[in-house]
Every structure is written in structure tokens, then in C-alpha cells.
Simulated scan of single mutants.
Amino acid sequence: MKFIIKRDRLIAGIQDVMKAISSRTVIPILTGMKIEAKQHGITLTGSDSDISIESYIPAEEDDMVYVEQIEEGSIVLQAKYFPDIIRKLPENTVEIEVDSNLKVTIRSGKAEFNLNAQDAEEYPHLPKLQTDDSFEMPIDLLKSMIKQTVFAVSTMETRPILTGVNLKLVDKILAFTATDSHRLAKREIPVADANIEFQQIVVPGKSLNELYKILDDTEETVEISVTNNQILFRTKHLNFLSRLLDGNYPETSRLIPEQSKTKIQVKTKELLNTIDRASLLAKEERNNVVRLFTPNDSIIEISSNSPEVGNVVEEIGIQAMEGEELKISFSSKYMIDALKAIEYDEVIIEFTGAMRPFVIHPLNEDSILQLILPVRTF
């Protein structure tokens, strides 16, 4: 195997696949990065058995040559050393050559590295997904759906199914739902050209966080394919494969209250900043609890009290309020997370009493929903 490649393109590909490589894997060869050279381009692969990432660098694209003098072959290189070597090479092209004894030579300018490699035949074969069962969506929309839900997954391994985001595609509506049983985040979008349906696909939150970081905003769409235990996200230069979590995701729709007793409309940023300030005195031992009180229908009062430290009270004006007076306590962290995820200027918060879950959604927009369970303090 041999090729000469533009160093910046190689670095970008390496950075993508490194997100799937772990030094703590039980399969030793997975600590390495697989490199495969074909006449049309180079494919880099990294995997930790949970997620697998393939990054493709075309030999030529849009009249630009990225890889040349390709002699086909494949090899696995130690991911501990290879990325740093490429990053620190002196020139902007790199020559990589492998001999029959799995010795790899990396040349750039006057620098030459010789590395021992492993046989690519020993690298596990990634499952090939049938792409008949797939649908496409804009990348920016997928990223915003991840951002608006993934923060609410559970970090506790006691209920592994809750460490993932539930994906559901029914009647051409795609829904992402995440909950850690104290809060819930949900986002729905229409997918006009979807020719498949599924109810119970749970993607690990960790996988979606990595996917969010790796997806390139410049590419337009991502193709999503699903099998019974894997999900594949595919763009022009990237395949991102994740295992799915086993088990039944809880039915969350019944947690969402049908009607409300108190409804307030408020500017998102103002409320976020006020709760953020109040949380300064609501540190760890009190679960970051802040209180919300509605003294009248034009202001709300946000307060927090820590006997050893002191207390804080701040009033903010609201756009509108209807319903009965309310005093409620909740985790400031959960509220801040929820408000940050809603990328709209104004929100509606609907309460059904001091000890019932309350719902936050953008003004005139029901496709994004955040639900939080209150804390008993009053």
C-alpha cells in the first residue's frame, strides 16, 4: 500500500475517527486506526464496538486532488502515535508506504517515521446496513434535535435504557425523547419522504454527543438507516455507526399534563439569567433548588435561600399570565438546561400545581417540549 495525501485533509479525517477509538477496549486491535487505500480514495476507520466511524477522503473532488500515486491496500496503525506524528509533520503533503512485513514509512519533507503496523484482516468487519430502510434530513435540523434532547438522558447505569434518546418515526413525524425520570426533553419534526416507521429505537446519549461534534455544518443532509440493533448516519464523507440500547423505553406521553392551572409567558434569556444568578446561593447540598412565586400577573419572583450563606430574591417582568397564584420549587440546573435548549426568544411555562410536573415550550411552537418535576420545599 502506498499513497501521497494532503496533510490537512488527513488530519481532519483522523480527528473524526479518533472519537470512536478508546484505549480501554477489550479487543486490542481496536486501539488502532484502520487505513484502507483504493483508487478512488482513502477510508479511515475507528471503532470501540459501541460506535464505529468511517471517514472518507476522495482522491479528487471539485477539481482538487487530495490523494495521488495510490497503490491499493489496507493496514492498522497505533492510534496512540499516528495522529500526533501527522499533526507535527513539516510539509503539507504526506507519503505513507507499507511493505510486505507490515512496516510503515511516513515521509514529509525531511522527516521520516517508521512504524510497526497490524494486519487489517484482523480488524473486525463493520456490519453493512441495508440502506433501503432509510430517510434523509438536513444536518442542521438533526444537530438541533440532538442539542434539544440529549442533555436530559440519565447518567445513572441503574436503568441503562434511560442513558439513551428514544427515536420514533410514525406517520412521517420523527420524535426524539430523553428523560432521566426527573425531567424530559422532546422534539418533533415532520419527515416528508420517510418510507419507514419505527417505535422503539434507543440511541446511547454518548453516541449522539459524539455525532453532534463530528457532523459538519457545511454538508446539507444526512441519511439515517436503521436495523434491529444498529443505526447508521451517513453523509458524503462520513459513516457513523452506533449500536442501539436493548430494552423497552418507558411510555412518556402520559407524563405530559393535558391542561394547566397557571400559565406564564416570559422572555427566555431574562428568566435564564435570573435563575442562573439565584442558583449561586443554591449550591450542591440543596440540590440547586430555586423557588418561583407569582405575586401578581405582571411579575414573577425568583428566590433562593441557603441558611449558611444567605439568600437572594429577584423580580422579573413577564409578558402575560393566566390562572391561579403559584409557589413552586425546582432544580435550577434542570431549568437552566431546559431554557438553554430552547432556541426561541419567549417561552410559555404551564404549571398544574406546586407538586406536579410543569412544561416549558417556545411561544407558538409545540414541537419542542421540556418537562421538569418540581422539588418539595414549600
Rank of each mutant, 00 (worst) to 15 (best):
R9P: 04
L10I: 11
I11L: 07
I11P: 00
K19I: 05
A20L: 03
A20G: 02
V26R: 12
I27R: 01
P28M: 04
L30A: 06
T31D: 10
T31A: 08
I35F: 01
E36L: 03
G41R: 01
I42D: 00
T43M: 06
I51T: 04
I51N: 00
I51H: 00
I53Q: 00
E54Y: 09
S55H: 05
Y56W: 11
A59W: 08
E60Q: 08
E61L: 14
D62T: 12
D62S: 12
Y66A: 03
Q69C: 03
I70S: 05
I75D: 01
V76Y: 07
Q78C: 15
P83H: 03
I85S: 03
I86K: 05
I86T: 08
K88Y: 13
N92M: 09
T93I: 14
V94R: 00
E95S: 13
V98K: 04
D99Y: 07
K103L: 10
V104A: 04
T105F: 08
T105S: 02
F113Y: 15
N114D: 14
L115Y: 12
D119M: 01
E121R: 07
K128H: 10
K128V: 14
K128F: 13
Q130K: 13
D133A: 09
D133N: 15
L141F: 15
M145W: 08
V150G: 01
S154C: 03
T158E: 15
N166S: 09
L167A: 06
L167N: 03
K172E: 09
H182E: 13
A185Q: 05
R187T: 07
A192V: 15
I196R: 04
E197W: 14
E197T: 08
I201H: 10
V202I: 11
K206F: 14
L215K: 02
T221F: 07
L232W: 06
R234P: 05
S242A: 10
R243C: 10
L245S: 00
D246R: 05
D246Q: 07
T252F: 12
E258R: 06
Q259W: 14
T262E: 13
K263N: 15
Q265V: 15
T268M: 08
K269H: 14
I275F: 11
R277K: 11
A282M: 07
K283M: 12
E284M: 10
V289G: 02
V289Q: 03
R291V: 07
L292F: 12
F293G: 01
F293S: 10
S298H: 14
I300S: 02
I300Q: 00
I302M: 05
S306F: 10
E308D: 14
V312A: 09
E314M: 09
I316Y: 11
I318C: 01
Q319G: 02
Q319D: 13
Q319W: 09
S331N: 07
Y334K: 06
M335W: 06
D337H: 11
E343V: 06
E343I: 00
E346R: 06
I348S: 01
A354E: 15
P362S: 05
P362K: 00
D366M: 11
L371E: 07
V375N: 01
R376L: 11
R376S: 07
